[in-house]
């Protein structure tokens, strides 16, 4: 009995120790970055390149998030509700960008939009240049972050019991108005969380963006640029600013989740 208790204690301590090691590994580099680079954030925010990069990053990430929500919500709803042939294939396609390295994702998009392809030349004919423009940044951000939106939105819709929609329909709603009046409001916190995660992912994207548009620079590309030209000292304030900017939406997300977990239904 005593031996069994000792084994349990050892197991508990080992589990906690392993978990704590991972937590430290995840948190310490970020804390170090903010602590060591924190003093330079003020200076970075007066740097014209940094201000331009922040503006580009926020605008393109917001557009990418809007597009992910606009186009991803119907897919998320269909995956959470409907049973149809090809459902598994659609789910796999949506997850695909999560499985490939981000520079490879950038190369794949580059293949699609380059002037050598019919699609790319059509875009150019329409006056829409993707490579080396904010449109390219949006495309790269959308590609890598949309799967996160669809996955989280699907979960948000799935949490709304479909019987609510059915009751709304017995009260005279069409399927669209039942969605608008019942499902969407009930899923809105989950959808907002999904959008925040998507935005944060878009803001921090580097690999796909750098392939499609080295310029105009987003913050992640600027920090890499400063690192390669000026070393750690130059890159640190930029990197610290990016981390602080990424932490704000995550804190907002936590607040939303906390709000939801305290809401009795």
């Amino acid at each position: 009995m005593r031996t069994r208790t000792s084994r349990l204690t050892i197991a508990h301590v080992s589990a906690w120790a392993l978990g704590a090691m991972l937590l430290l590994f995840l948190a310490v580099p970020i804390i170090l970055l903010v602590v060591l680079g924190g003093a330079g954030i003020g200076g970075a925010l007066r740097d014209h390149d940094m201000i331009a990069a922040l503006e580009t990053t926020f605008v393109t990430a917001t557009i990418a998030t809007f597009l992910a929500a606009l186009c991803g919500s119907p897919i998320a709803y269909a995956l959470s509700r409907a049973k149809f042939r090809g459902r598994a294939l659609i789910a796999a396609i949506v997850d695909l960008p999560l499985l490939i390295p981000h520079p490879v994702a950038g190369i794949a998009i580059l293949l699609l939009v380059s002037r050598d392809t019919a699609f790319g030349s059509t875009l150019l004919d329409m006056g829409l240049r993707v490579v080396g423009t904010p449109a390219g940044i949006v495309a790269a951000m959308l590609f890598v972050s949309a799967p996160l939106y669809v996955s989280a939105a699907r979960e948000a819709f799935a949490r709304v019991d479909r019987r609510y929609e059915f009751v709304a329909r017995t009260l005279g709603d069409t399927s669209w108005s039942a969605f608008r009046r019942v499902t969407f409001p009930m899923a809105r916190r989950g959808l907002a969380s999904a959008a925040i995660v998507t935005w944060a992912r878009a803001v921090s994207e580097f690999g796909a963006v750098v392939v499609l548009a080295y310029n105009p620079k987003v913050v992640s590309v600027l920090s890499y640029d400063r690192f390669t030209t000026g070393g750690l000292r130059d890159a640190l304030p930029i990197a610290a600013t990016l981390v602080v900017v990424s932490i704000v939406p995550l804190l907002a997300l936590r607040a939303l989740r906390y709000d939801r977990s305290n809401e009795a239904v």
């Binding site: 019987r163 059915f166 009751v167 329909r169 017995t170 009260l171 005279g172 709603d173 069409t174 399927s175």
Partner: peptide
């Protein structure tokens, strides 16, 4: 469709 049946439900 449920909305055009004139049938109410108390689940």
């Amino acid at each position: 469709p449920p909305e055009s049946r004139g049938i109410g439900l108390v689940p």
